[in-house]
Design a protein around this nucleic acid. Structure first.
Lengths: 81, 81
DNA sequence: TCGATATATCCGCTAAACAAGATAATCGTC
DNA sequence: GACGATTATCTTGTTTAGCGGATATATCGA
């Protein structure tokens, strides 16, 4: 659990939304804790394609999340080394 | 190995650069394979703070990488569940 | 050290993100 | 259905990323 691959910006937005709801936070409260307006949180959760990295990172820290980069086949048991 | 936490945009850029070099690719070739000018790759590798997610994703796919979101304490052995 | 390759930085222009504020739509609950 | 709370969608003005294209500055090998 608690390890989500975000293969597209939209998936990333959905993941952020999922974590926010898991913590029972509103877009407003998340926005306040990371200095973004509620409208921005809404937009980012639905489609952050054109959003800047800085905004993403602000939300990540507000939700106490981290971002990991790894090769695509990392999760495939057949190609573990 | 091959699992890097990008705690800041700059770290993310450094990780992308590391992977590119591991594959022995130039900024130009990466740029061509993902439709970005070489200058953009350079800028993103050094400090992608203000870069859009779409650009990041384009590079990720060019380098065959994926992005994972997880709680901050995920890597701490003491707090595994 | 020289030459070639690779990387960094600069130009003007356009399109679009961003900020602030307001409002509209939606959801859950009674 | 009505209400409050939450989320989505506008508006206007300002800032800045992104694009193309070119050029400078490393960096590396011979």
């Amino acid at each position: 659990m608690s390890d989500f691959v975000a293969r597209t910006p939209k998936q990333l937005g959905a993941i952020l939304r999922g974590y926010r709801r898991e913590w029972n936070l509103t877009q407003q409260s998340v926005g306040i804790s990371c200095g973004l307006p509620q409208a921005a949180i809404s937009q980012i959760e639905s489609n952050p394609t054109t959003t800047s990295l800085s905004r993403i990172y602000r939300i990540l820290s507000a939700l106490d999340l981290e971002l990991v980069i790894r090769p695509r086949n990392s999760g495939d048991p057949k190609t573990k080394w």
